[in-house]
Amino acid sequence: MYTTELKDKHAKTAAAISAPEDSARLEAFEARVAADDFIEPKDWMPEAYRKTLVRQISQHAHSEIVGMLPEGNWITRAPSLRRKAVLLAKVQDEGGHGLYLYAAAETLGTSREEMIDALHSGRAKYSTIFNYPTLTWADIGAIGWLVDGAAIMNQVPLQRTSYGPYARAMVRVCKEESFHQRQGYEITMVLAGGTPAQKRMAQDALNRWWWPSIMMFGPPDENSPNTAQSIRWRIKRETNDELRQKFIDVTVPQAEAIGLTIPDADLKWNEARGSYDYGAIDWEEFYAVVRGEGPVAKERMQARVKAWDEGAWVREAATAHAAKHETREAAE
């Protein structure tokens, strides 16, 4: 989901597995994956599997890091000491999740520096949702409730994804994630039950975050050509549309419980399907944001590049100091 199967110019398709790769090994690999076994870092794996995983895991990591920014925007303005502490803890968790995921990606033969370089140069993507601005405190509630809610929906099945380090990172993430959603929903609930100004803030935030949140699940299944292979390799456990439907079905009653209205005139319970029918998603908007034209995409990248560039002298100092120490210790 965090990659939403964003096509990148350099991706190979499943058919392009090069001939020299041992087809017996490939068969053994596929059998292990089909048997719910885990693949670990030094195991043989098809190049396409390795490449897809590096892309998916690193983009998931980038999303966590960039995701610190829209919420970080409100830590200094949180309206109570408790809200401030909880938000700071949540954003710190997100940084931590990014760390677990970068660590998992590094086991596949890439480095933190390479991944950051890919992000800053625009080659690597991150979840489209973080290119939207947080205008009011109510946005912080909406993000926790909807964005973390959508993330949880995706992450829970990934706890049994085929690649061991990724699965283990997901187990850690899932343990920590549940307070994130509750925090957001609680904020929204208090606002929705508050003064008219607060209620307006909460509804306005829902109006702006609803559609981008359901877009987080990626393009419709018919436009996701890699889904079948990803599912076979257990990199994905359910399809985009399946997850999206689940999310909508779970979230609509949550909104109703606090007196907020989902901004979709076509939303309707379908008794026969046992699910909600929902309105058409503006895929033009989605693809524009994927292309880098999201409302605050520039601001997000500028912030990350600035932090990295301005931090260079710090990293260099630490490295220089460590080297001096090694030399001194060796001389003793």
Binding site: L99, E106, S111, R112, R315, A318, T319, H325
Partner: peptide, 28 residues
């Protein structure tokens, strides 16, 4: 210039052994 990678092992409780938790980058 890059900080090297370190593997992290955590003992959660006395009586248990250290388990691999993941990795971090650090200069020393």
């Amino acid at each position: 210039k890059n900080w090297p990678l370190w593997e992290v092992f955590v003992r959660v409780k006395n009586g248990l052994s250290h388990r691999h938790a993941g990795s971090v980058h650090a200069a020393d």
